[in-house]
Measured scan of single mutants.
Amino acid sequence: KELVSALYDYQEKSPREVTMKKGDILTLLNSTNKDWWKVEVNGRQGFVPAAYVKKL
């Protein structure tokens, strides 16, 4: 599985998104959309802005 690192804090703005803190390591589930990537963090799945994470 592919991992990404959070470059910035992000506070979810809808139920489809997830909150992350800078430095968090997230499991990348889907990166086909260039703007929003689906990740899993702390057992929750949702979307984060692609520009806020980088692949490890």
Results as ranks from 00 to 15, higher is better:
Ile25Lys: 06
Leu7Tyr: 05
Arg16Gly: 14
Pro15Ile: 10
Val4Glu: 01
Pro49Val: 01
Thr19Gly: 10
Leu26Arg: 00
Asn42Asp: 12
Met20Arg: 00
Asn33Met: 09
Asn30Pro: 03
Tyr52Thr: 10
Met20Trp: 02
Trp36Gln: 03
Thr19Gln: 04
Lys21Val: 10
Lys34Met: 10
Glu40Gln: 09
Glu2Gln: 14
Thr27Asn: 08
Gly46Ser: 02
Val39Asp: 00
Glu12Trp: 06
Val18Ser: 02
Gly46Asp: 00
Val41His: 14
Val53Ile: 11
Trp37Cys: 04
Val53Lys: 01
Leu7Lys: 09
Leu26Asn: 00
Pro15Ser: 13
Val4Ser: 05
Tyr10Lys: 01
Asp24Ile: 04
Ala50Lys: 07
Arg16Tyr: 14
Val18Arg: 02
Val53Tyr: 01
Phe47His: 05
Lys1Cys: 15
Pro49Lys: 04
Asn42His: 11
Arg16Lys: 13
Lys55Gln: 11
Leu28Met: 04
Val41Met: 13
Leu3Gly: 03
Val4Asp: 02
Asp24His: 04
Lys1Glu: 11
Asp9Glu: 06
Asn42Gln: 10
Pro15Gln: 10
Leu28Cys: 05
Tyr52Gln: 06
Asn33Lys: 07
Lys54Trp: 07
Lys13Ile: 07
Val39Thr: 01
Tyr10Ile: 01
Met20Thr: 03
Thr32Cys: 15
Ile25Thr: 08
Ser31Ile: 07
Asn42Leu: 08
Thr27Glu: 11
Val41Lys: 13
Ile25Ser: 04
Lys21Gly: 05
Thr19Val: 03
Gln45Pro: 06
Trp36Pro: 00
Lys38Gln: 14
Leu3Glu: 08
Leu56Ile: 14
Tyr10Leu: 01
Thr27Trp: 14
Val41Arg: 11
Ile25His: 06
Ser14Leu: 08
Asn33Ala: 09
Gln45Val: 15
Val39Ser: 00
Leu3Cys: 13
Val39Tyr: 00
Ile25Asn: 04
Gly46Asn: 01
Glu40Met: 08
Lys21Ile: 09
Thr32His: 12
Glu2His: 11
Thr27His: 10
Gln11Val: 15
Met20Cys: 06
Asn33Gly: 11
Val18Gln: 03
Glu12His: 09
Trp36Asn: 02
Gly43Phe: 05
Leu56His: 09
Leu29Ile: 14
Leu26Gly: 10
Gly43Pro: 01
Val53Ser: 00
Lys55Val: 14
Asp9Val: 02
Asn30Trp: 07
Gly23Asp: 07
Phe47Ala: 03
Pro49Trp: 02
Ile25Arg: 06
Tyr52Arg: 07
Tyr10Arg: 02
Phe47Cys: 14
Met20Phe: 10
Thr19Leu: 03
Glu17Lys: 04
Val18Tyr: 03
Met20Asp: 00
Leu7Pro: 01
Ala6Phe: 01
Val18Trp: 04
Lys13Pro: 05
Arg16Ile: 13
Phe47Ser: 03
Val48Gln: 00
Lys21Thr: 09
Tyr52Cys: 15
Leu26Ile: 08
Ser31Thr: 12
